[in-house]
Amino acid sequence: MSSRIPNALTIAGIDPSGGAGIYADLKAFSALGAYGCGVVAALTAQNTQAVTGVHTPPTDFLRLQIDTLFADVRIDSVKLGMLGTADIVATVADRLAHHAAKFVVCDPVMVAKSGDHLLAKSAVAMLKEALLPQSFMITPNLPEAGVLLDQRAPESVKEMYRAAERLRELLPLSSERWVLLKGGHLPGGELMDLLFDGDRMVEMPGQRIETKNTHGTGCTLSSAIAALLPQAADQFRPVEAAVRHAREWLLRAIAASDELEVGKGHGPVHHFHALWRR
């Protein structure tokens, strides 16, 4: 385990309820030993029940946020969340390439837990063309995998295997890149995620936790991985170790979520379950 505290950056949207987006990412970074930085790619009017509005900053200002931060702060990992439009995706991809960003974890946020769409259809092609080549890892759920592959979402573990293989083909083949395909939308009580680097397919099973408090789970998992990747460098199979640690931490955060009372819809997970004592 590296002794240097990593600086992790999230480029994503703002969820005022704190369950998803940048606020959730910063909580995950902090809970898992990373110093969090954030660049705002979108503002939302949102609570645990709905997204009622989205406002995106001018791309010139988005570029200025990224360049100003990288000019001063060593960034050890990057989590990408809600980017919203094709222009924003292209701007982020351009600046990450310019700054040679490390450990870019791309969570292709497309639909909120409430069902509201957060990524314009025109941005999907730009995501695949410009942003995925910059990504060290992508973390789609099954519906997002279907959109990225232009097919229906996988409905079984067997179909997940083929989808993970095809998703890996969207990433550069000549370097270490990873797909974490999340199987939370599979029917039944069991969970299965697949971690694939083009060679090894690692099955990561889990037990489904019965709770309505699942707002921001995708954001939180990807940011947890981004926090842990720079810290896992000295471990055996460091990427797998980071992902396993992040998943275990998230499952405990979901299990403890009923301790919180936030909103009337899909509530947030308890990011600080291991740190707060009642």
Rank of each mutant, 00 (worst) to 15 (best):
S17N: 00
G19A: 05
G21Q: 13
L26F: 08
L26A: 03
K27R: 14
A28D: 05
F29N: 09
S30W: 06
Y35C: 11
Y35R: 14
A42D: 08
A42C: 11
A42G: 12
A45C: 11
A45D: 08
A45M: 08
Q49E: 13
A50T: 14
A50I: 13
V54C: 12
V54R: 08
P57D: 10
P58E: 14
P58V: 10
D60L: 13
F61P: 03
F61A: 15
L64K: 14
I66S: 07
I66N: 12
I66P: 06
D67F: 11
L69I: 15
D72S: 12
R74A: 13
R74F: 04
R74H: 09
R74G: 03
R74I: 07
I75L: 09
I75G: 13
D76V: 10
V78S: 09
L80Q: 04
G81V: 09
G81L: 07
T85Y: 01
D87T: 09
I88D: 00
V89M: 08
V89D: 05
V89G: 01
T91R: 02
V92N: 11
A97N: 14
A100T: 11
A101L: 12
V104G: 02
V105G: 09
C106V: 15
V109N: 07
S114A: 14
D116A: 15
L118F: 03
A120R: 02
A120H: 03
S122W: 05
S122P: 01
S122G: 13
A123P: 02
L127M: 11
K128A: 03
E129F: 02
L131W: 04
L132H: 05
F136L: 13
F136C: 04
M137I: 15
M137R: 12
P140N: 04
N141Y: 00
L142Q: 12
L142S: 08
V147K: 07
L149A: 06
L149V: 00
Q151H: 04
E155W: 00
E155I: 04
S156C: 04
S156T: 12
V157L: 01
V157S: 03
M160E: 00
Y161A: 03
Y161E: 10
E165N: 03
E165M: 09
E165V: 05
L167K: 01
R168Y: 13
E169G: 04
L171F: 12
P172C: 07
S175L: 07
E176H: 12
E176G: 10
V179P: 09
L181S: 06
K182W: 01
K182E: 02
H185K: 08
P187G: 12
G188E: 05
G189N: 15
E190S: 14
E190I: 04
M192Y: 11
L194G: 00
L194M: 08
L195Y: 00
L195N: 00
F196N: 01
V202A: 06
E203A: 10
E203L: 06
R208L: 05
K212H: 07
N213V: 01
N213A: 05
G216Y: 05
G216C: 07
G216P: 06
C219R: 01
C219N: 14
C219G: 13
L221D: 01
I225L: 06
A226S: 15
Q235W: 10
Q235V: 08
R237L: 09
R237T: 10
V239F: 02
V243Q: 02
V243P: 01
V243I: 11
R252G: 09
D258Q: 11
D258P: 05
D258Y: 05
P268T: 11
V269C: 04
H270K: 10
F272N: 11
H273Y: 15
L275R: 13
